[in-house]
């Protein structure tokens, strides 16, 4: 554990809690992509199955349980409790275009051919692109609520901080995992446009709207 990894995790946790807070407080999931949330739930479920097979630390297990619970909770709020507020007309990205390639790639580029390892690799690849339906939705509606922007910023920062963590781990532990690094870089690049808008608009007190 290093400072970049810890900040990354906390940023990830903040993002997930911000989203739940937004939905609960406004009693609405307007502007939030249910497809992205579904993809994240698939990601956590595929990756954290290792809760049953290996123990790393209390910190790790607790975080995994929180991420899983929060993602299923978000789905419950979006598709059940506040379903009438879900803006599905604008949430039209085809997620099979993300799931199928991620699945195929996880059979091609993987460290070890075991079920758990392929599921873990699939989760890494799928996570890299899981935000696309949400970004597509923002581009379709042309705007995002400020709290949604904060959510996206925290979520994007998490993997960017992980990249710093991997650089740090490379120099201090000689640790290098190209699967997570390449996927993490793709994931962070997808947020670049959004980061730019966030810094130039939201941080100056303006609402995020596209030109």
């Amino acid at each position: 554990m290093n400072i970049f990894r810890l900040c990354g995790d906390l940023s990830h946790l903040l993002a997930i809690l911000l989203l739940l807070f937004k939905i609960w407080k406004t009693r609405s999931c307007a502007g939030i992509s249910g497809k992205t949330q579904l993809l994240f739930t698939i990601v956590y479920t595929a990756r954290y199955l290792d809760l049953f097979t290996s123990f790393v630390s209390v910190y790790n297990s607790v975080m995994k349980i929180v991420f899983l619970t929060a993602s299923y909770g978000t789905l419950y709020l979006m598709f059940y409790k506040f379903k009438p507020t879900y803006d599905h007309n604008h949430d039209s990205f085809r997620i099979l275009y993300l799931i199928v390639p991620a699945l195929v790639l996880s059979f091609i580029i993987v460290h070890v051919y075991t079920v758990m390892e392929i599921l873990w690799t699939f989760s890494i690849y799928l996570e890299a692109v899981a935000i696309m339906p949400q970004l597509f939705m923002v581009s379709r509606t042309g705007e995002a609520e400020t709290i949604t922007s904060h959510y996206l910023f925290a979520l994007g920062s998490y993997r960017a901080l992980y990249i710093l963590n991997w650089i740090y781990r490379y120099y201090t532990e000689d640790f290098l995992d190209w699967i997570t690094i390449m996927a993490g870089i793709v994931q962070t690049i997808l947020y670049c446009d959004f980061f730019y808008l966030y810094i130039t608009k939201v941080l100056k007190g303006k609402r995020l709207s596209l030109p």
Partner: peptide
């Protein structure tokens, strides 16, 4: 690189 090492990350 053994993939196990990566699994200590979230």
């Amino acid at each position: 690189v053994k993939s196990d090492e990566a699994h200590d990350e979230l």
